[in-house]
Design a protein around this nucleic acid. Structure first.
Length: 214
DNA sequence: ATTTGGATTTCCT
DNA sequence: GGAAATCCAAATC
């Protein structure tokens, strides 16, 4: 399924309103106010945004939403040491260890105390390609950041970034510049609440972790 | 093209 | 002890 995301409508303020972390001459980044809303509104708006760490990164092409009433959400069963960031302020990173091997990056949403987050699942690598290729031991751009574990390896994201703000150094997060064709479908790799269509992607992108069913 | 097993942390029963 | 928001390579269809 493909539809166009509109930039502004009567229910939702324009994304330009949310920028606060501006520096002279730079487009304002997405800050805590942008993320202090329903995770189901935030997630699709992240498609097309640019994520960087120390200048390395690219365009977000795939995310998934996890809300506080969602059995698949890590915060659903209450706070633990691992998921503590999900219960903290919005706009921060929640980084967890997946299958004992990989790191996965989320951005915390909703007002503080409501455990929800957007899992960043894939980006199109555009900035600092050589750094990403070196960390991944791969050259094929299509495989560099196509998956939550892969993109964390490419960007050098680890537990050290858990709780970090995404609107200040070393991170930067810029809103998408224009409308994007959006794909929607069920989330990947979960067993609980697997039917909920809360995976969003840039339609027909070659940099997705998997194509969207059509 | 699709399936399988191994690597290994964190949390829950 | 076992499952999990994963990835990779090897084997088999």
């Amino acid at each position: 399924m493909v539809k166009m995301l509109r930039r502004g409508n009567s229910h939702m303020p324009d994304m330009e309103e949310y920028g606060a972390s501006s520096s002279p001459g730079a487009r304002p980044g997405l800050d805590a106010r942008f993320f202090a809303r329903s995770v189901h509104r935030v997630a699709p708006e992240l498609i097309g945004a640019v994520l960087m760490i120390d200048g390395v990164g690219g365009v977000i092409v795939e995310v998934e939403a996890y809300d506080h009433e969602d059995p698949a959400c890590h915060g659903f069963g209450g706070r633990t040491e691992r998921n503590a960031a999900m219960f903290g302020p919005p706009g921060r990173a929640y980084v967890y260890r997946s299958y004992g091997i990989h790191w996965c990056l989320n951005v915390v949403c909703e007002p503080e105390g409501i455990a929800s987050a957007v899992l960043i699942r894939a980006i199109e690598p555009t900035l600092g390609l050589e750094a990403m290729q070196a960390r991944r031991g791969l050259s094929d751009p299509r495989l560099l950041c196509a998956g939550p574990g892969r993109l964390c390896q490419a960007l050098g994201i680890t537990r050290a970034h858990d709780h970090a703000r995404l609107d200040t150094s070393p991170f930067a997060l810029l809103p998408r510049a224009a409308e994007v064709p959006l794909a929607v479908g069920p989330r990947i790799g979960i067993t609980k609440a697997a039917d909920r269509p809360w995976r969003y992607g840039l339609a027909r992108s070659r940099f997705l972790s998997k194509p969207f069913p059509r």
